[in-house]
Design a protein around this nucleic acid. Structure first.
Lengths: 218, 218
DNA sequence: AATATTATGTTAAATATTTTACAAAGTTCA
DNA sequence: TGAACTTTGTAAAATATTTAACATAATATT
């Protein structure tokens, strides 16, 4: 968003590079599935709708993965990017706020495919607590810390609660040792600098579209 | 995401400025609701978790809205930002792909509050076509153009279909005259340069979080 | 009324990111 | 084997964005 959510420092890898890496990975997996054995930066760039130098530059931050005159071996590049992004192991995720959006995310296959496994559901609504969705019981938001202590380290939390309770939920997640947050609440969170948080603000996106519709893109 | 979706040119307003403007607006509306009559760039910056020069710089692209020595009048600034973002009129939106996510978006109150009204639902699944959600009938994706022709200009489309059909849906929307797209399909779309498209890729966001968890933020 | 204080708006500097350009390294074909 | 061709990896240049610094304008105070 968006936007620069992460502070980078000189000689660090740009946030946008990391985002593009994830996009390259999707493309590579798609072409690998139809039997493509190798791909050039140019072809990959075309799929990703960026320039080929950018592809090479992005990859060069992490090493030399290609063969000059040839290109990149699809399988190898997939393995490498997965390693860079830390996707070689399953990650446990908890989700707080089981409303429409929370349920939709729970049913979203993309997460599981990439190894993000939603293992715990939490809500503050007593009417929801105790009920089940997809064999997962909804627990009280006040039991997050206790749950994480019992079920082993959980590094990622998804916040799907209204704006007014988002900071409280964030604090709860922090107390439980969560280090990464995907925040769907339309409010910037106060977090220590060692926590990575990405905000997905749906309304903001619509407003940005509205801006460019009005102004014209050019 | 997040990421730079829009090409800017020298002396143009940065994409990130537009995003922040939408965030400022949310904050202003929140503080206005509790009776705050004026706010300084410093206070606004603190809420938005940015620096105060950035707030002033962002606003200065569009005019002089504050009073030196005083700050910004909350109501006035809200009005101005709404005008900048084109939020002073209702916008009709159509949504294609009524799966879990599509339904969640349909139930999302934030859109309606900002004047984005979902007026048409489309899907390719014959089993869904003809059924209703919230008094809105799901129509066949093949009738998008016809519908828009009948129901007047619709400038924004939301794509909630799987990756493999996203480009087809995008083409359909373009043919119907849609100029802005919010794309939840995890694939970059080929679009003419006068179309504004923002991609919301949930898996990418998780992968980016995974990267920073592994690498450490510092 | 003059001075101190506050907070905006803007120019200039610093930093970050993207693009260009090209050397280096591998492959293919004569 | 060597020349032509292809495509990577990267140093340098160009561009864009953010941060800093400060002049300007309004208010409050004495």
């Amino acid at each position: 968003m968006p936007r620069k959510a992460i502070k980078t420092r000189s000689n660090e890898i740009p946030y946008s590079t990391v985002v593009r890496l994830a996009q390259y990975l999707k493309i590579l997996e798609r072409v690998e599935a139809v039997g493509t054995l190798k791909i050039s930066s140019n072809e990959l760039a075309k799929e990703a709708k960026v320039n080929s130098f950018l592809v090479r530059k992005d990859l060069s931050y992490f090493g030399e993965f290609g063969v000059r005159g040839v290109g990149y071996e699809t399988k190898l590049l997939i393995t490498q990017i997965k390693k860079i992004l830390g996707l070689n192991k399953e990650r446990k995720v908890i989700l707080v706020g089981v409303g429409h959006l929370g349920r939709a995310l729970l049913g979203y296959k993309g997460f599981a495919e990439k190894g993000f496994k939603i293992v715990g559901l939490f809500d503050s609504d007593p009417a929801k607590v105790g009920t089940k969705i997809n064999d997962l019981e909804i627990m009280s938001v006040f039991t997050v810390e206790e749950y994480v202590k019992k079920k082993g380290p959980i590094s990622i939390g998804i916040i799907c609660v209204p704006a007014f309770s988002a900071q409280f939920v964030a604090n709860t997640l922090l107390a439980a040792g969560v280090k990464g947050i995907l925040n769907f609440a339309p409010v910037p969170l106060s977090l220590p600098p060692d926590i990575i948080c990405i905000n997905v603000d749906l309304t903001t996106n619509m407003e940005v579209i509205s801006y460019y519709l009005q102004r014209g893109l050019k």
